[in-house]
Design a protein around this nucleic acid. Structure first.
Lengths: 340, 340
DNA sequence: TTGAAAGCGATACCAA
DNA sequence: TTGGTATCGCTTTCAA
């Protein structure tokens, strides 16, 4: 049986001094024992007394006091984005966090919506994180980076569609997705390609580079690329479908599978045959796309394993001050089904 | 023009003592000025000199030192769940966080996967949060709650399908979803109702109460409830559909819209007519369900606005020690479309 | 109006 | 093997 603390009532929070008093030793000894300090030899009976006193009081060390004394933290701060992450990102962050915890870092997400580009880094800096990994959806200015640096952050890393000056970058280059989808359509003989641009705010950060990638891929084939603004609503899709034939497109890259499903339904309802008249390609390779008829072609994305990234953070923390590195994390490949 | 800091180079982190030195005042004065301490009057020229010195050095206060001195933090800690939150939860958390920040709390998410039920609360307690809001996907034992309490947490709140002893509870009672879906099917004359139980781990926490709710609703009508294990894969759905007619069901509540779409497709492929032979109801009311033919009936869920919750936290922090409160956040209602 | 100094909790050096 | 003590950065009381 684990020994339950005796006083579940409100009271002052026990400190190492309380443990020391109860164990009949000094605070120094308590510290040695509880941190398994190898450079000092403490007798086994003393160790036991200290440990028992600690559990009896329900002692938990005070991270703030410790890091104040140490002069640094082991906190890695991840500002959170202001919109839902897909399962892909989610798994990535989850594994990254596990990897960092294995390296003995404390990983903390800090919701930063509503803070502007200057306030946010200040707020983060107050916690004195040793590393910051900021998603691309968070604006990170050179000033912000500088604030973090001088507050003691050894590693400032951006994680998003494109690198940011002065920080290390983990790039998930969305152009790759656009060029991959477009390449697939080109291969299948399509030359007049629409590219859905979601009108929902926040998605532009991903949509723009995907469009750019599509343009780039189309260039060599002399294909036409036509941006198609679309809201994630049936009426918006119906309007787009109604004027579809006037646009003379033979294919569409629909930003992702959800927009693709929305648009494909609207096209079918408007009597446009998929894929004969218009090919449709999504992205994300959701299970649901496979349930449509025709089954939805898609772009499957894969992220690099996060462990090397965790190691990178650790390396930067231990040897700060190298030149900014830039790693590409995103791999995309087209998955042909029936809609293209 | 905002004054850019002059030394972007590595160096010691500036402290209030540095600011004091540069401004030619004492550390006390710096503290008074930067915290707008009203109980003490500082001359305007001095204030200006202090502020200028602070921005010149890029001074950022040290949260750990401050809270060590103050004897308490204003940190609200949200242990993060180990699986992706839907847009509903996501919006809720986001708004909750904003509400808390308005009340001047620092909101921090702490990824806790891989920590067991004893270690996790200890790890949280090291940060000395003034409040902890733990999702139901995190096991929170009475011991864990006790550890948090004695580490100074004024408010320990669980947020999930069911309350936990000794903590305040924000309940999102999933039984409501099950009984709502089942009630809808009963109203439409169905009496032999299958309930999809996802086999993916972690979902049981939601699926079980939904099943219980379905059972409860069926009771008064003498209807039959049949749990149907299902993996989120086409083959699993196809197998279930293949033996569908042997089970004699006239309706199915498919856990959520995604499982519903998967199963409905499999049923249709197996020649079973929806809704004539079998009615299908999902949950979440996703846009995508409206794109199917027949359009998917669903259960729309709504969460209470988070602002009262933020206020609750604030109240508990200021006046700790009331009896555990229990608030119901989830509202569900059936949305009839064509599949039922 | 400003400054000196105590003290929050934990750690590590130096003495004993 | 153990204890005393200075120290980290900041706030606040008390004194000037």
């Amino acid at each position: 049986m684990s020994q339950l603390p005796n006083q579940p009532t409100e009271g002052p929070v026990p400190t190492s001094a309380d443990v020391a008093r109860l164990a009949g030793v000094s605070r120094a000894t308590v510290s040695y024992v509880l941190n398994n300090n190898a450079s000092v030899r403490i007798s086994e009976p003393t160790r036991r007394r200290v440990r028992e006193a600690a559990t009896e009081l329900g002692y938990v060390p005070h991270a703030a006091a410790r890091s104040l004394r140490a002069g640094h933290t082991r906190m890695v701060l991840l500002p959170t984005m202001n919109f839902p992450a897909g399962p892909l990102h989610h798994r990535f962050f989850h594994q990254l966090e596990s990897g960092l915890r294995r390296l003995d870092y404390t990983v903390v997400q800090y919701g930063s919506t509503g803070l502007d580009a200057d306030d946010a880094p200040r707020a983060w800096a107050e916690l004195r994180p040793v590393a910051v990994i900021a998603p691309g959806t968070i604006a990170l200015t050179p000033q912000g980076i500088s604030v973090l640096r001088r507050s003691g952050a050894k590693a400032v890393i951006t994680l998003g569609p494109r690198p940011v000056d002065g920080a290390h970058a983990l790039v998930m280059d969305q152009r790759e997705v656009g060029s991959c989808a477009t390449g697939h359509l080109l291969e299948r003989g399509r030359r007049r390609i629409g590219v859905v641009m979601p009108e929902e705010s926040g998605l532009g950060l991903f949509a723009e580079p995907r469009l750019a990638g599509a343009r780039q891929a189309a260039l060599s084939h002399g294909a036409r690329i036509e941006p198609l603004p679309l809201r994630y609503e049936e009426e918006s899709a119906a309007r787009l479908a109604a004027r579809w034939r006037t646009m003379g497109l033979d294919a569409v890259f629909a930003y992702n599978d959800e927009y693709a499903m929305l648009l494909m339904r609207a096209l079918q309802d408007a009597g446009i045959e998929v894929p004969r008249e218009t090919a449709v390609v999504g992205a994300d390779d959701l299970m649901l796309g496979r349930l449509l008829r025709p089954r939805l072609s898609s772009v499957r994305m894969e992220l690099a394993t996060p462990q090397p990234l965790a190691d990178l953070v650790d390396r930067l923390v231990q040897h700060p001050g190298g030149a900014p590195e830039c790693h590409d994390l995103l791999r995309a490949r087209a998955v042909h089904r029936e809609s293209s």
